[in-house]
């Protein structure tokens, strides 16, 4: 009668991935995904909205990185160290249809996570260079000043060094290429989750949303 039950939250000494990721991992994951999609596909660069979303993505990334040190075991960097060799082994096992279970991100997923973070840092860093590190509030204020006929806001920014020089064009190129790379990584990531879910016969998407529904 007392059939062994499994806990929904957390893992009891087994190496299976979490049934439900903690709320910080989930919120930062979807927040950054939304910001990347909106900024990459919908709105135009340089607008207050674009810069605000970029800053929000930066905040979410900061929180996720802090969480990588202070968070629960499966969210910490130590649970998924970058290991290209292990990632290749995992992919080979996956191709053979025998993927091993891991307590956190699997090694291939971990490489994807780090690739995302590095690319995000490049996009955010180049974005900050392009705006001269101005906060969205400042950009909105400058835009309002220019709109009201006070063009001095533009002059101050040109003094900052990043005007229409070749350097600016390079940074713009980096920003654009890295942003496109993010979208490609996102597509790869979605494909990876799909393939892995089928190979493991396990829904990997539910733990990133609300967990498995109990019947």
């Amino acid at each position: 009668m007392a059939s062994p039950r499994t806990t929904e939250v957390g893992t009891v000494g087994s190496a299976s991935p979490p049934q439900l990721w903690d709320p910080v991992v989930r919120l930062t994951h979807w927040g950054i995904a939304l910001a990347v999609l909106l900024n990459g596909l919908v709105n135009d660069g340089g607008s207050t909205f674009h810069v605000s979303l970029g800053w929000m993505a930066m905040s979410l990334l900061v929180l996720r990185l802090v969480w990588g040190v202070l968070g629960p075991s499966e969210a910490r960097f130590s649970a998924f160290p970058p290991n290209p060799g292990a990632a290749l082994v995992h992919l080979r096992r996956l191709a053979a249809g025998r993927p091993k279970e891991h307590a956190s991100h699997n090694p291939a997923g971990a490489m994807m996570v780090y690739a995302f973070w590095i690319t995000l840092l490049v996009v955010i860093g180049s974005g900050l260079v392009l705006t001269g590190g101005a906060t969205p509030m400042r950009i909105a204020a400058d835009k309002a000043a220019v709109a009201s006929g006070d063009w001095s806001a533009l002059i101050v920014k040109d003094g900052g060094g990043a005007n229409d020089s070749p350097r600016r064009e390079t940074v713009e190129g980096v920003h654009e290429v890295a942003a496109n790379l993010l979208l490609i990584l996102a597509a790869l990531h979605v494909a990876g989750v799909f393939v892995e879910s089928r190979a493991m016969r396990r829904d990997l998407l539910a733990p990133m949303i609300l967990g498995h529904r109990r019947k």
Partner: peptide, 28 residues
């Protein structure tokens, strides 16, 4: 438990947003 952690997470998120924006302003 979920409500409690969700509330704490949202609070932490708002805190981080505020801090990053503020620090950006301070650096400016």
């Amino acid at each position: 438990g979920r409500r409690q952690t969700a509330a704490l997470t949202v609070f932490l998120l708002v805190q981080t947003l505020g801090t990053v924006f503020f620090v950006g302003d301070v650096i400016g």
